[in-house]
Design a binder for these strands. Structure first.
Lengths: 253, 253
DNA sequence: GTAGAAGTTGACGTTACGGAAAGCACAAGC
DNA sequence: GCTTGTGCTTTCCGTAACGTCAACTTCTAC
């Protein structure tokens, strides 16, 4: 009893295209091929197809299925590993769905603002730059100054805040270029960047030498600031801190 | 301030290949291109890239991201739909992992048998053919005969049982061909098939006309039998039943 | 002057097929 | 004998989002 490709397709529920594919990749060859080129399958082929489809429904790849059927690997090991991947992927999707849910909630919450449709909130930028976060770690040491900077931040429109963020990002990238070129932190160009940074901070408050150095150290110590710098280049947080310390020593008291 | 492709790659954490890809598909074009062909990005490009990467981390496809950023679709709607898909896929993987776990357990349970490494257990065949299941629905009406068939099934080796299953599958496919050709159930060829079926059953017990007709009706009524027939061809269960009834009327008493 | 770094385009590979095009073989009906 | 229809064949393109060469140009540094 020989079945044509359409017979097997009807019996198994797959398309003839799939059967040709399995033949092509060597997963399931027909028992013989007629003089007209047609594929004919026998019962052992059907049995093999049944096994293929069972494993396929479990989510295994065709490569793995072939290895299992050729007895090259142990099927229990393969299935155990596969299950591990399935569970990991399930958990990933679970977390992802939660994140999407939170994003939706945030978008809807801000819907009444005229700025609807905006996705780039500060916490989503790569730099993690955030005026609210900016002041937080410093507040413990200089509460009065931190209060001033908070008041300043409150005066900004969102567009202005965004422009400041982009400027800060650009400055960080320029610093990274200096670092990559192994420019000493005392180099005039680097110090000019630090000066610009200092001027920016002075729009909020005016740190003295110790405060400015502490701020630099904070970029290294604070996890979020450090991540922001390290995301741009490895070692950038330390480089920024050293440059700020050099600037403070040279020009502040 | 113009950044090279490598600058943007460092800042954003993606590869330059990815940026070229985004340019290629029109998702993110550089601000301008130098006379040497190099891509240069400006701040608005960075901002757009930030949005792209945020949405990408949420699992959206680049096509959808483009639609959102071009304001062609509402982002909240898109995210909601996306979340639905994520949850559905998560559930699917959850079920799949459970199924794989059960399969592993079954395989390990049967490990001590000499037949380890075997995947095709009867319940996994497309036909759903199973000698244990075969007798169950009939047992209520003809308990004695069902007991005989159970004893017969117990005498079979697994290889013999499998051969019988394949024979049964082949017979079902032949019947499906007759049905597809609109062959009347009283046709001699069809009746020959039914006779062979009857002979097979007679190896277990010997139904009279009423029992044989009831068996055929059972193929239509029982969900598992019906599914096995319908899986091969729509309407096959009824066709089989009618053929068996015709045979019973003509040759049994 | 030449090595090295960084850029470019182009093409192929990945998964598991779907779909279309173009052609061959065989049967039925005119 | 010719057309039409059916079923099969091979071959190629497309999918998502890039990774990975390969071959080439351009610019900078020693």
């Amino acid at each position: 009893m020989a079945w044509s490709i359409a017979d097997v397709a009807r019996m198994s529920g797959v398309t003839s295209r799939t059967l040709r594919h399995y033949d092509e990749i060597g997963l399931l060859a027909p028992a013989h091929i007629g003089s007209n080129g047609h594929r004919y399958y026998e019962e052992d082929g059907l049995l093999r197809l049944q096994q293929i489809l069972l494993l396929r429904e479990l989510g295994l790849g065709l490569r793995e299925i072939a290895a299992v059927l050729e007895r090259q690997v142990d099927q229990v090991d393969t299935l155990r590993e596969h299950q591990r991947r399935l569970l990991a992927e399930r958990d990933r999707l679970d977390v992802l769905a939660c994140t999407v849910g939170r994003t939706i909630a945030e978008l809807e919450e801000n819907e009444e603002t005229p700025d609807m449709g905006k996705i780039s909130r500060p916490e989503n930028l790569f730099t993690g730059f955030d005026t609210a976060r900016y002041e937080a770690p410093a507040r413990e040491k200089w509460p009065t100054e931190a209060e001033q900077s908070a008041q300043f931040a409150a005066t900004l429109t969102e567009a202005e805040a965004e422009r400041l963020q982009r400027e800060a990002t650009a400055a960080m990238v320029r610093m990274a270029e200096f670092m990559r070129a192994a420019t000493p932190v005392t180099d005039p160009e680097v110090q000019a960047e630090v000066d610009a940074h200092y001027q920016g901070i002075c729009r909020m408050w005016t740190p003295n030498a110790a405060a400015f150095k502490a701020l630099g150290q904070n970029y290294v110590d604070d996890a979020q600031w450090r991540a922001a710098y390290e995301h741009i280049a490895a070692g950038l947080a330390e480089y920024q801190r050293d440059a700020m310390a050099a600037s403070a020593d040279a020009r502040l008291s």
